[in-house]
Amino acid sequence: MVDPMNHPIVSVRDLAVEFRQHTGTVRALEAVSLDLHPGRVLGIVGESGCGKSVTARAMLRILDRNGSIVAGKVTLDPGTSHEQDLTALAPEGSEIRSVRGGRIGLIFQEPMAALSMQYTVGNQLMEAIRVHRDPGKEKARERAIALLNEVGIPRPETRVDAYPFQLSGGLRQRVGIALALAAEPDVLIADEPTTALDVTTQAQILALLRRLQRDKQIALMLITHDMGVIAQMADDVAVMYLGRVIEFAPVRELFRAPRHPYTKALLRSVPDLDAKPRQRLATIGGAVPQPGARPSGCPFHPRCPDAMPGRCDTKAPAPVAPGAAGAACFLVEDAAA
């Protein structure tokens, strides 16, 4: 469990995000509360449309233009004299830009999203280094090479002058990580950092992320759809479904004793390497509803085997309280009462 003396470095409270679409307004996030702690990995897991990427984008204020934060706070360094509410900053202002890529580094699913084709790897790293703390050109280049070395790129002194398209997918993602680390951030947000990679490369990148996070005591927010990645990487896990955090728990607790019916079902539907031949997988009925067709009450009730008619379909259970293990489910509320 989280050490109470260990204050969060980022705290998200009751975050709600809406997207304007031609059919009307779609609520993509609802009452999301999370804490990121130094030296810990918060895993965010969920299927498509659950809002895991939207959460990260809202925190960094890089939502698409039709999206807006309608409620909640994202506080950097909460409880300190220099705490800062990121939702209050101008979306294109200098303050948020110094947080993005400064205090908070970002790793994308597709490293090409962060890298430019027109500049060498070194140029882009040096720019990121010098924007935040300019040590001069010579020193910045040395630091760029050191960063490439740190993320496990062989022959960094020559690769520093390579263009991103000359590198393989795995090396590009390593450069993406180096770029995120350039300003020595306290917080890293990694949005599906290995989804586009081969499995053996994924294993390498995950090992790298874990090593860097431990060595630098970074607060890592790891977004993924893969329960295996969560099991291997996370300290704490937030499970999201249709824009809500429906369960939060330390990783071992979550895998040993999941509380929410959705978490249970999700864990059961993961393919098993020890399965019997032709063994069927456990399934969740139906599919994730389209964002515009959010069910009333608990968003999971139409697919839930334990849904209680008249209750789950009329009223949403209370959101998960930040920092404590729990689930947004009437069954859990009843068991606690």
Partner: peptide, 8 residues
Amino acid sequence: MSGSLADD
């Protein structure tokens, strides 16, 4: 089925 097929 329900959600996506609702809008006939």
